[in-house]
């Protein structure tokens, strides 16, 4: 638990201006605490609007202007929030790479793939253009692109989504970063190529033993490719621990409910749903963010926000984690 972990986020809170011009702000992240070690893959799981993407954007300092960020955000012990412009450029260009959800929207349609792949390392003076082109070709082969040289001359609109996302993976690997932020890298892709792209990404991360913060709403996928899972709801991390344990023995009612509401590959039955609707971070009351939808909620849950605490080998933000443990496992073992 030293402070020079690869990435450490402590009590992160983000408020965005609600509308341009108005002074009001709305909270999109209440309290996020998580860390990524070298070679560790951490999954950040939650519904849409829970603040997952905002967490990665805050990590890259890519939040929209006017955003207010508080809490700790350190990379190898250096506070990312206090980086000067020069340090920030070095951090973004060499240390951390981000893979985005929609590769088509996130590539400039007017530039060739080759230009897109090499411009980062060339513009920040890490490589000559010729070396960068060679390395890009080699990486393209690594991610299973056979005709690398031809692809480099093509434009994004000439490539399929799956292929373009592989280009995005290569782009992320070009500067040999230490940490990869993957924001739902397969969500925008065809189902048929999702697993292929995910396998390629997981393999590249493992081979290079990079740290990865993997954002997804797919709990099964996250459990399969990550070492640690953090479950997020309404801008708060509600449970965090080793992936297999969180996945098999959830200790937070929200995690358990998520696991129960997945379709089964073998049984045909009505899906369980979580009652109520997901709330946004700014709608959360003073108590536990999940209290309104939680079948176990008490008066305390509605009034006092539970902090993350150690229960059964992981961190859980639930007042009643011990009391309800056996009830949570019920119906999951089946």
């Amino acid at each position: 638990m030293t402070s020079d972990r690869l990435l450490s986020i402590e009590g992160l809170r983000v408020d965005l201006p609600s509308r341009s011009g108005s002074r009001e702000r709305r909270t999109v992240i209440h309290d996020v605490t998580l860390s990524v070690d070298d070679g560790e893959s951490v999954g950040l799981v939650g519904e849409s609007g829970s603040g997952k993407s905002m967490t990665t954007k805050a990590t890259m300092r890519l939040l929209p202007p006017g955003a207010k960020v508080s809490g700790g955000l350190t990379f190898r012990g250096e506070s990312v929030l206090d980086y000067s412009r020069k340090e920030l450029a070095a951090y973004r260009s060499r240390k951390v790479s981000m893979i985005y959800q929609d590769p088509r929207a996130h590539t400039n349609p007017l530039l060739t793939i080759g230009d897109f792949l090499v411009e980062g390392v060339v513009a920040t003076g890490q490589m000559s253009r010729a070396d960068a082109l060679d390395q890009a070709c080699a990486l393209l082969v690594d991610v299973g692109v056979t005709d690398a040289e031809r692809r480099m001359l093509q434009y994004p609109h000439q490539l399929s989504g799956g292929l373009l996302q592989r280009m995005m993976i290569v782009m992320a690997l070009m500067p040999s970063p230490e940490l990869i932020l993957a924001d739902e890298p397969t969500t925008a892709l065809d189902v048929t190529v999702q697993s292929e792209v995910m396998a390629i990404l997981a393999e590249q991360i493992r081979e290079r033993s990079l740290g990865m913060l993997f954002i997804t709403h797919d709990l099964d996928l996250a459990a399969a490719v990550t070492d640690t899972l953090a479950v997020m709801y309404a801008g708060v991390i509600v449970e965090r621990g080793p992936s297999d344990e969180v996945y098999s023995k959830p200790r937070h009612p929200y995690t358990a409910a998520l696991l129960k509401s997945r379709p089964s590959a073998v049984k045909v039955e009505r899906l369980e749903t979580i009652p109520g609707r997901p709330i946004s971070a700014y709608e959360a009351g003073p108590g536990c963010v999940f209290a309104a939808r939680c079948p176990f909620a008490t008066e305390e849950c509605r009034e006092v926000r539970p902090a993350l605490r150690q229960v059964g080998g992981r961190s859980v933000a639930c007042h009643r984690a011990e009391d309800i443990a056996s009830e949570l496992f019920e119906g999951l073992s089946a």
Binding site: M60, L62, L88, A89, A90, Y91, R92, S93, R94, S97, M98, Y100, H106, T107, N108, E119, G120, A123, T124, M171
Partner: peptide
Amino acid sequence: MTATGRGL
């Protein structure tokens, strides 16, 4: 945003 995030 991609370009900015790459430190260009």
